[in-house]
Design a protein around this nucleic acid. Sequence first.
DNA 1: CGTCTTGCTATACGTGCGTGTAGTGGGCTA
DNA 2: TAGCCCACTACACGCACGTATAGCAAGACG
Lengths: 204, 204
Amino acid sequence: MSTEDLTARARIRDAAIKLFTERGMEKTSILDIAEEAGVSGGLIRHHFGSKDGLREACDTHVFGELVKFKEEVLAKGAANPGFLPTFDARQLLYRRYMGRAMVDGSAAAQAQFTGIVDETERYFREQGMDMPDPRGAAAALAAMTGGLMILQDHVARALGEEPGTNEAMLRMSAAAGHLFLNPLATTEVLEKAREALAAYQRKE
Amino acid sequence: MSTEDLTARARIRDAAIKLFTERGMEKTSILDIAEEAGVSGGLIRHHFGSKDGLREACDTHVFGELVKFKEEVLAKGAANPGFLPTFDARQLLYRRYMGRAMVDGSAAAQAQFTGIVDETERYFREQGMDMPDPRGAAAALAAMTGGLMILQDHVARALGEEPGTNEAMLRMSAAAGHLFLNPLATTEVLEKAREALAAYQRKE
DNA sequence: CGTCTTGCTATACGTGCGTGTAGTGGGCTA
DNA sequence: TAGCCCACTACACGCACGTATAGCAAGACG
């Protein structure tokens, strides 16, 4: 899995996933990917037809792998909901790729997002959680964990950690976990917020 | 403020903010902005020197306005922490711009992010909130609200709402608020997550 | 041995877009 | 009226990059 023992096609795909994730689609040229993968630019076209074709291949590969990850977790019996931290490097990369893909906007990414929302909503209902809008909460949660993935470098820098390190990810995950598992406001602020929201909803 | 009563310079800036927000820097050409603003492409260069100059102008304008918004809120006495919902259209646009800017990555955006983290951390400490890592929590919170801004269109679509509408924003904000103000997991899941995290930290 | 496929490279083409430059009109001040 | 600044336009340049094509080496199959 490290690099040379892969077919060129797989190396290209992995390089593209890496660079798309780090820089985004638009800022990554075919030649950048070719260099990263150690092949000529033409070979990318040969294998994937076009840049968009390559992108689609990356999408399906990443999203497929993410499904596999999820199934592994389920197979282990641990009903780990998506918002709890994981530290597998490849899974982290793929999750981050997914965030980037959503920002860049593709049909596959939208479908993936909706799928996650579906699952999370189902999880909420299965757990019998008491919330006024389970689907809304599921969607918001998906967007928030997406934000953690997408902005992780900013988070690391704001924390004085080196972006991309395990240390930074660990600290961010722990903090995010804490936020999800504890109410964020004192009761007064909480009440004020509820009032503001209710007032707005009446006005609507 | 609607369009014609602005100087061309301001129209260009506003058009750029709008398009950068919707499509991102790379996918927005100078001519797109010129058309949106109803001017020639050259005028943008005349006023802002380069595309990067325009971007910087947008950054400073948006970030400055966001500071103003914050000061207004503070002046009104309501100590509204940043994570509670707001519905002013321009403020929403500017927050979303900020999210995009962070994804696209500029020094100004990183500074802005760090500033928000600073403030939020201070808020946590002032409120005397009980958390193991206030700065980490502040950074994670900033990234999560950023995710809500950046991915709002995906959220809307997953909810079957029209992206960009007040209705969609309202529903997302309410759901996000609920998540922040209520613990997300049953105690068993919670305990399991704590264990997993602790195990990982020991391994580190 | 011949030919075909396949993985791969080198190189050329077209074009979109940021940039640079020359020029125009209109509203100042004198 | 003359002179001048300044917002603004038109247009040409050059480059980066996606796309297209031709060709080559090597293994497979007859």
